[in-house]
Computed example of a mutant assay.
Amino acid sequence: MAGDTKERILETALALFAQSGYLGTSMHDIAKELGITKGALYKHYASKQEILDSIVERMNKMDYERAEAYEMPETEPDGFAEAYLHTPIAKIRTYSMAQFDHWTKEPFSSNFRKMLTLEQYRDPKLAQLYHDYLATGPTKYMAAIFRKLTDSDDAAMQLALEFYGPMFLLYSVYDGANEKESVAPMLCAHIDRFIAKIESGYRKPHAEGA
């Protein structure tokens, strides 16, 4: 029962953070939304920072479980790049679509993204989280994957930007769309075009030389 209460607190707090921002939400606001006293709230979480830390911890757990569920390689960047070359295209495509759904359709992670988007210019620590989860982090991760497919770090970064840039933009397109299901075909088309480029220009030479 206590675990259910702590989970409810996290979800309620994050929904408020996504709406009013982390800095704009108080422990009083969270308790009021939950219909409990501040004293009862403090029995579960000593501070708003502790709530945020627990949210980040859950996000990290969700990331790991999702990668495991889709059987994506869990190695260091160099090893991942090698594994990526031998990962079926269908699996890469499915995982990329799952990532997009994770950040747009799943309430917890979607609210986490919205909170970081609101706070990226107001709090240095939250700005760092924004870059780690949504901007610099994913781009560098993809560049590390593509490094073995190219002849330079700059070329790998260009591939990463080509792949992740449109996906990042489509988060905002999704948020503003009246018919949100219309965004999925755009994402599919982008991923298919990119994979076709990789197949014709990068993966085949490596496969022939293997």
Score class of each variant (00 low, 15 high):
Asp4Asn: 10
Arg8Ala: 12
Glu11Thr: 05
Ala15Pro: 07
Ala18Ile: 10
Gln19Ile: 03
Gln19Asn: 05
His28Pro: 00
Lys32Gly: 01
Lys32Asp: 13
Ile36Gly: 09
Thr37Val: 03
Lys38Ile: 04
Gly39Trp: 02
Ala46Cys: 07
Glu50Phe: 04
Leu52Glu: 09
Arg58Val: 00
Arg58Gly: 01
Asp63Trp: 01
Glu65Leu: 13
Arg66Ser: 02
Arg66His: 03
Met72Glu: 04
Pro73Glu: 01
Asp78Met: 12
Gly79Ile: 06
Ala81Cys: 11
Ala83His: 03
Thr87Pro: 02
Thr87Ile: 02
Ile89Trp: 06
Lys91His: 09
Tyr95Ser: 01
Lys105Ile: 07
Asn111Pro: 06
Met115Lys: 02
Leu116Gln: 04
Leu118Lys: 14
Glu119Ile: 02
Gln120Val: 08
Gln120Trp: 03
Asp123Asn: 15
Gln128Trp: 07
Leu134Thr: 01
Gly137Pro: 02
Lys140Pro: 03
Met142His: 05
Asp151Ser: 12
Asp151Arg: 08
Asp153Phe: 08
Leu159Thr: 07
Leu161Pro: 08
Tyr164Thr: 02
Gly165Lys: 11
Leu169His: 14
Leu169Tyr: 15
Ser172Phe: 08
Val183His: 10
Cys188Met: 13
Ile191Gly: 05
Arg193Glu: 10
Lys197Ser: 13
Glu199Ser: 10
Ser200Cys: 07
Tyr202Met: 11
